[in-house]
């Protein structure tokens, strides 16, 4: 099966640091929020780890951001400007995951160097990478030193408002951290997309390629 290079090294480095970092952030976040229900580590250890890993992830975000800012690969994040076209493609993709995949139909999206995301991924990652992740980092930094950033916190409506935003995004990422690897296992084989995120090369499905369920 032919393969194409779709995940450059900086993206792979960013991805895996981000993946493990987010798992750690969710684990420590759950421990911080649910003392008494969960006993993975002490509250204080969880807070210290949460802060340190948070700053590592902020630094890591800039690997991703600067790479795409100074590379033509940023085209993978370019939005589809025609809403009708975008939603048609999204619906086709949704239909595939909800129905076609069980029948063994081929994935309607064909990966290329500048179009590695299907319509649903494209929309989701734009929201995640350009809105939710920066907002989570921003609220996290404000909560890291509430006194130092009290001016900005007051503008946003107070520490409870900032925390609520932080927790709502945390809840979204908790769901995402389960769904994302599952969807990644729906390549032409269960492990195809995982391997690609290590090697950088995605095997390109031909006409006869079927869903991983077959």
């Amino acid at each position: 099966m032919p393969s194409i290079y779709v995940h450059p090294l900086p993206v792979r480095i960013w991805h895996w640091i981000n993946a493990f970092g987010f798992v750690a952030m969710i684990a420590t976040g759950v421990q911080i929020r649910y003392v008494g229900l969960i006993d993975l580590m002490s509250f204080k250890t969880a807070v210290v780890l949460h802060n340190w890993i948070g700053f590592v992830l902020i630094g890591n975000f800039f690997i991703w951001f600067l790479f795409y800012l100074f590379s033509d690969k940023i085209k993978v994040y370019h939005p589809e400007l025609s809403p009708a076209k975008h939603f048609r493609a999204s619906f086709r993709q949704l239909k595939y995951y909800g129905y076609g995949i069980f029948k063994g139909e081929p994935n309607p999206h064909h990966i290329s160097v500048y179009q590695k995301f299907n319509a649903m991924q494209s929309m989701t990652y734009q929201v995640i990478m350009l809105l939710l992740v920066p907002l989570q980092f921003y609220t996290g930094v404000l909560l890291w030193d509430v006194k130092r950033f009290s001016g900005m916190i007051d503008v946003l409506g107070g520490v409870r408002v900032v925390d609520t935003i932080h927790v709502l995004i945390f809840i979204f990422f908790t769901g995402f951290i389960f769904i994302h690897p599952y969807l990644a296992s729906l390549g032409h084989t269960r492990t195809a997309h995982f391997k690609a995120m290590f090697t950088g090369y995605e095997e390109v499905e031909d006409e006869t390629s079927r869903s991983p369920f077959q």
């Binding site: 003392v35 520490v159 409870r160």
Partner: peptide, 16 residues
Amino acid sequence: SVDSVGGFYAIGGTRI
């Protein structure tokens, strides 16, 4: 109370 008690929050203790 997110708006009215916006200025007070203790992680875990006053979670919503």
